[in-house]
Amino acid sequence: MKIATTQIWVHDQDEALAFYTEKLGFEVREDVTMAELGNFRWLTVAPAGSEVALVLMAIPGAPMFDEERWKLANEAMSKGVATAVFFTTEDVRADYETLSARGVEFTEPPEERPYGIDCGFRDPSGNHFRLSQLTQVANPA
């Protein structure tokens, strides 16, 4: 078994698409709108060469989410508690400079940690992400 996709909620799929492709440099994997499902849009992006893609999913309305659940999902996402995606890189400081120049909003600059160098950023929907240059990987028990 392999993980193929992981989903993150976004407020606006077009805005998210521009952020992930233009600022992070990801490529579009799939962008399909299904009229038979009420114009549901399946939109995935990924870093070049990655086997796993991110589904940029609009928070659904009725009938999947009633108004209260829709509001709760939006609120949680905007506070950064709805995502847990961690990216790794070979040179976190260089990527930090490149992405900052492209307008990516970092919540924390690169800092030394016991496992490597780590920083945090967010997307236009408020999702928080970690970007790490790992120097030490935990051994399995």
Rank of each mutant, 00 (worst) to 15 (best):
K2R: 14
I3R: 07
A4Q: 14
A4F: 13
T5Q: 14
Q7W: 07
I8P: 07
I8M: 11
V10H: 13
V10D: 10
D12A: 12
Q13L: 14
D14W: 08
E15T: 13
L17I: 10
L17D: 09
L17H: 13
F19V: 08
Y20F: 14
Y20H: 06
T21F: 10
E22Y: 03
L24Y: 05
E27C: 09
V28G: 09
V28E: 13
V28F: 06
R29L: 10
E30I: 11
E30A: 14
V32A: 12
V32Q: 11
L37N: 07
G38R: 08
N39T: 06
F40V: 05
R41Y: 06
R41V: 05
R41G: 05
W42S: 01
W42Q: 03
T44H: 01
P47T: 11
A48R: 09
A48H: 07
A53N: 09
L54A: 03
M57A: 15
M57I: 01
P60I: 02
G61T: 08
G61M: 01
A62S: 13
P63Y: 04
M64P: 00
E67G: 12
K71Y: 06
L72C: 06
L72I: 10
N74Q: 14
M77C: 05
M77P: 01
M77R: 02
M77W: 00
S78R: 12
S78A: 15
S78D: 07
A84V: 03
A84Y: 11
V85S: 04
F87E: 01
T88Q: 04
E90F: 01
D91E: 04
D91K: 00
V92I: 09
D95E: 06
D95N: 04
Y96E: 01
L99K: 00
S100N: 05
S100H: 00
G103N: 07
E105A: 11
E105M: 08
E105C: 08
T107K: 08
T107A: 02
T107F: 03
T107S: 00
P109K: 15
P110Q: 05
E111C: 04
E112W: 00
Y115A: 13
G116I: 03
G116H: 02
D118S: 15
C119P: 04
G120F: 12
R122W: 06
D123F: 04
P124I: 02
P124G: 06
S125A: 12
G126I: 09
G126F: 03
N127D: 07
N127Y: 02
H128E: 11
H128R: 15
F129T: 09
R130I: 06
L131A: 05
S132H: 08
Q133S: 10
Q133R: 05
Q136M: 09
